[in-house]
Amino acid sequence: MASATQALPQPAMNYRRREFRRAWRSMVAAKWPLLALLILVCVIFAALFGPQIAPLDPNRQNIMLRLAGPLTEGRGKTLFLLGTDGLGRDVFSRLLYGARVSLLVGISAILVGGTIGVVAGLVSGYFGGWIDDVIMRLGDIQLAFPFILFAIMFLVILGPGLANIILVLGVGQWVTYARIVRAQTLSLREKEYVEAARALGDSTVSVIFRTILPNIMAPLTVIASFNVASVILSEASLSFLGLGVPPSVPTWGSMLAESRDQLLANKWWLAFYPGIAIVMTVLSFNILGDWLRDFLDPRLKTLG
């Protein structure tokens, strides 16, 4: 610990610590973000160690034991904790594996969209001129093209697949990031410390990524946390249309979409557990996003 402290200049380290402590206190005071954080930690744990926790193979079917209710005993010593689905697969194991894929889709799509958007926004805002024009028109085209049509069109053509879904959902998000980053960059470009960095002979790339980018990360984090939630929902809708991930890949969205024929037949567990998983995760991302926004927005800090 001591050596790690020495690696950073003392004042910066202290500032960072103080900020973390302040964040923690604010989180504890607000209570809900703390709960959200706890839920997300659980979900991330399930995503990382799902394969180790899962009692059964999530893709092992047994149609003779399909649609068994929660706590049904299977052959041998197996227990279907949360019941089985339409092909006799263990819902609990699929839920655990699903955590991994759903989070993967949510986060990677944001990373894809965020990266494209941030780079486009930085370039656009920093250089201005015709580059700015081209990028912003591309953004307008993307916005004017209804996202759902964009997604359906490309998934019908590329075929369903995890990478394709991530790509399509990611590309659909870039404009939001690009616009915010551009606006921030425009205002930062003329700031003294950016001028200073430039005057010191930093390369353009270095100015953009080392000086400007760190200063606009805060609002981006807030948007990203909301976005993860909406991407998880979009994935569910695409699964409903039959454009989701391949059948061997469990996701919460596709589990929910598969359950729709069973709703009238009152097989509630098929929809309930993935539904709860989605609601809790999305809710947590939203609550954290809210809190983060309040925390980072100095104007709101004064409010009791």
Binding site: Q262, L264, A265, N266
Partner: peptide, 8 residues
């Protein structure tokens, strides 16, 4: 008719 809705 979806086979799983026959019962309903």
């Amino acid at each position: 008719v979806s086979p799983d809705q026959i019962g309903a």
